[in-house]
Amino acid sequence: MIINNLKLIREKKKISQSELAALLEVSRQTINGIEKNKYNASLQLALKIAYYLNTPLEDIFQWQ
């Protein structure tokens, strides 16, 4: 199981879903879906999320 901390980290950094989506060149709905565990981010997208949030990938998506 993967624990998804994207919403928590994004909100801590005061970045909206729309802002993050624009940086990543995806839709806001994609970010929303990832945060609600409706969609799994591809490895490429997960790495981009970590880069733009300046946060280690394993802090955003944790295996349990």
Rank of each mutant, 00 (worst) to 15 (best):
M1F: 12
M1W: 10
I2L: 11
I3Q: 11
I3S: 11
I3E: 07
N4I: 08
N5T: 04
N5D: 04
L6V: 07
K7S: 07
K7H: 07
K7N: 04
K7M: 07
K7L: 08
L8G: 10
I9G: 01
I9Q: 05
I9E: 05
R10E: 02
R10F: 06
R10D: 02
E11G: 05
K12F: 09
K12R: 12
K13Y: 08
K14N: 14
K14E: 08
K14Y: 05
I15N: 01
Q17G: 04
S18Q: 12
S18W: 10
L20P: 00
A21Y: 04
A21G: 06
A21I: 04
A21V: 05
A22R: 13
A22H: 11
L23V: 13
L24A: 10
E25N: 15
V26K: 00
S27V: 02
R28V: 15
R28L: 15
R28S: 12
T30I: 13
I31T: 01
N32G: 08
N32A: 15
N32M: 13
G33I: 06
G33Y: 11
G33V: 07
E35H: 04
E35C: 03
E35T: 03
E35D: 02
E35W: 01
E35M: 03
E35R: 01
K36L: 14
K36N: 15
K36W: 07
K36E: 15
K38L: 10
K38V: 11
Y39A: 10
A41C: 15
A41Q: 02
S42C: 06
L43N: 07
L43A: 09
Q44Y: 11
Q44D: 14
Q44K: 13
Q44L: 09
L45Y: 01
L45I: 08
A46N: 03
L47R: 13
K48W: 03
K48H: 05
I49T: 02
A50K: 03
Y52I: 15
Y52K: 05
Y52P: 00
L53Y: 03
L53P: 00
L53W: 03
N54G: 10
N54F: 05
T55S: 09
T55H: 07
P56M: 03
L57H: 03
E58C: 13
E58T: 11
E58K: 12
I60A: 02
I60G: 03
F61P: 00
F61G: 02
Q62L: 08
W63F: 10
W63H: 06
Q64G: 13
